[in-house]
Simulated scan of single mutants.
Amino acid sequence: MIKTVVGSYPVVKGAPQNIMDKIKDKLGMFDEFKYAIEQSIYGQVEAGIDILSDGQTRGDMVEIFVSNLYGFEGKRVVGKIEHTKPITLNDIKYSNKILKSLPNTQNKSIKGLLTGPCTIASSIRIENNNHYSDNKDENLIYDLAVALKKEALDIQNEVSTIQIDEPILSTGMYDLDMAKKAINLITEDLNIPISMHVCGGVSGIYSELHNFNVDMLDFEFASNKKNLEVLEDINKKIGFGCINTKLKTVESVDDIKSLIGEGVEILKNNSKFNGINGNMVDKLNNFVVIDPDCGMRLLPLGVAQQKLKNMCMACDEFENEIKE
């Protein structure tokens, strides 16, 4: 099974190491986040991740986008929101450069990450604005979707897949029909696989999420075991979150493997899963991607790294066992 990450990784900023770096630092040109990206890629490769991220090192999932979209001052909306330049493209290109410089990484790739329009909208301030009435204004969601679509088009040729993060959808705060229209606007012209990550409990909404124009739905199963019940009916490829990123304790390989096994037993009752040609390994490789529950930015570096290592080891051991 393919192993990936949801996105963020602990940030380890770099410091000037040589004369040229120190000159750049004095001129305000030294990029302390390049080191963080490097460490993110090295750590993910060492753990055994197949589809990597750049680590989302330059800010949280909302900050990265609002700080680069026209119409914002911080997280306050001050005008009509527009996309004026690529936001994540340079870090993706740098990640690809680092990845290609490492041995035995020919089959690994970088994913693109977009924070979804509803999640961004829920985290910003609308004050005395002539364009939008409040955080749920349909024009706000639409303009964010248009901006994110431009970002997706900018990065799609540099990544193997794009993940849209919409954790807010499980809260009921946003109308799912409006959210679907926004996501479909983003994805309609893309030519690579698209996944959507939704945090929290999804048993009440996953049937509606089926109708979103994405190829894969990514959910939490370690911290929300009730989500396991959706596996019986899910009709899209599933991102199976199997390590709890809210906890600083490291799950054992056996515990992770046990959770994967629980999920697979339920999938055996899924008609879409059973319709895939091949043996059980073939079915899983075509239907399941293994990843953490959510991003890992807030975890200590050593904890995050060990969680990823144990996750990859558990996945590989599980796959080997079902081959026997």
Rank of each mutant, 00 (worst) to 15 (best):
I256M: 04
K268D: 00
P193H: 05
L52D: 04
K272S: 14
N286I: 04
Y42R: 12
K225E: 15
T119M: 04
L102A: 03
K13R: 15
I186A: 06
D154P: 05
A152K: 03
E158C: 00
N104T: 04
E73W: 02
F33N: 11
E46I: 13
N244R: 07
D143E: 08
V11S: 03
G278M: 08
G239I: 09
F273A: 06
N107C: 02
L301Q: 12
M1I: 13
L27N: 01
L89G: 00
G261Q: 06
T105V: 11
K22F: 12
M313L: 14
L114Q: 01
I266H: 02
D215H: 15
I276N: 05
A304P: 01
T187N: 15
I243L: 11
N104D: 14
G79Q: 06
F273C: 06
P103L: 04
H210W: 11
M296L: 12
S8W: 04
I51R: 11
N68C: 03
K108Y: 01
T105G: 04
L284F: 02
N191M: 07
K136D: 10
E151Y: 02
Y94Q: 01
E319G: 00
I192Q: 08
D175K: 09
L231P: 13
N191C: 05
I192C: 07
V281G: 02
K236M: 06
G55N: 05
M216C: 13
V146R: 13
L217A: 11
T84K: 13
E317I: 14
P10D: 01
D189S: 11
V146E: 14
V264H: 08
E232T: 13
S95N: 08
G302T: 12
Q44Y: 00
P16H: 05
K309V: 14
S122K: 10
A314V: 02
P292W: 01
I164P: 00
A145Y: 04
K26Q: 11
M61L: 14
K22S: 12
S8N: 11
K136N: 14
K24T: 06
Q156H: 12
K111E: 10
I205C: 08
A314S: 07
K22N: 05
F318G: 00
K136A: 10
F221S: 03
Q156I: 08
I276R: 02
I81R: 05
Y42E: 08
I256K: 04
I194N: 07
P117D: 04
